[in-house]
Amino acid sequence: MEADELRHLKVDKTVDARGVACPGPLLEAKRAVASVPLHGVMEVISSDEGTTEDVPLWAKKVGHEYLGTVPEAGIWRVYLRRGK
């Protein structure tokens, strides 16, 4: 999805993992996804660039849909749709 579409998504849950180092954002995403309704959207905000690779790969591995990433100044917003 394009950045504009991502920005206008209805987000069911935001995980603010700014300032947390690897593997923190991944672990927080894993923990939080349980409280997202099925097919709902989760946003993960991270200041660790590795998150932009880790979270999509994790999503693919465990069955969530990766929607895209919006980079901002020093942070990244990663969007997922809960798949299971």
């Binding site: 690897c22 593997p23 991944l26 672990l27 894993k30 880790d54 790969l57 994790w58 591995k61 465990v62």
Partner: peptide, 11 residues
């Protein structure tokens, strides 16, 4: 332990 936690997060 970072690898173990990552692998566990990957289920």
């Amino acid at each position: 332990f970072i690898i173990a936690n990552g692998a566990a997060a990957m289920e």
